[in-house]
């Protein structure tokens, strides 16, 4: 098994936050039912989709995720009454912020997947992977390096002796 192919064949990296009661259970069901799907999603289990701090999402993008997926119970089914209502509001707000940052719509997704919808875990995963493959890498960490270099360069320019600048 050769694992060094990370960069030569790029594959989308998706960080997912699944609530314990519905979507995480659905993913388990997909497992038990051997519903094969794309291997790009890495799940972080939280008790409720309402636990997902908008900063988690931003952080995931910053650290190199190409997409972020939040999975929760259907509206009305949240184990904590209405945690997912709060998720919707945060989702809408985050969408706007991400748009302003130039992060494409398809990269951030919210899905209601109930404990019995193992099949939906597959459809959502595969669909998201397909869309991200079309978009290509987001690669924020690399961009940060490039931006840092640019900033350094600019700073260097500014710190040059005044005459030189005037000369230019």
């Amino acid at each position: 098994m050769e694992l060094k192919s990370q960069n030569d064949t790029w594959k989308p990296r998706i960080v997912a936050f699944f609530c314990n009661w519905c979507t995480y259970t659905a993913a388990d069901l997909a497992g038990v039912s051997r519903i094969k799907h794309e291997p790009n999603v890495r799940v972080i289990r939280v008790m409720c989709s309402g636990r997902v701090d908008p900063q988690f999402v931003i952080d995931a993008f910053v650290k190199g995720a190409d997409g972020v997926l939040i999975g929760g119970c259907h509206i009305g089914d949240c184990h904590y009454i209405d945690g997912n209502h709060k998720t919707i509001r945060r989702f809408a707000m985050l969408k706007r912020i991400l748009k302003d940052m130039g992060i494409e719509d398809e990269r951030f997704r919210l899905e209601w997947i109930s404990a019995s919808e193992g099949e939906k875990v597959k459809t959502v995963t595969n669909d998201m992977v397909e869309k991200l493959e079309k978009l290509g890498p987001l690669g924020l960490p690399k961009k940060f390096i490039a931006w840092d270099e640019e900033m350094n360069h600019l700073e260097l320019e500014i710190s040059k002796p005044k005459e030189e600048i005037e000369h230019v």
Binding site: M1, E2, L3, A30, G31, V32, K36, P39, K122
Partner: peptide, 14 residues
Amino acid sequence: ENASWVHVDKAEAT
């Protein structure tokens, strides 16, 4: 449930 049962590609699952 999250990997070996749902993926086919061994390198990716690993």
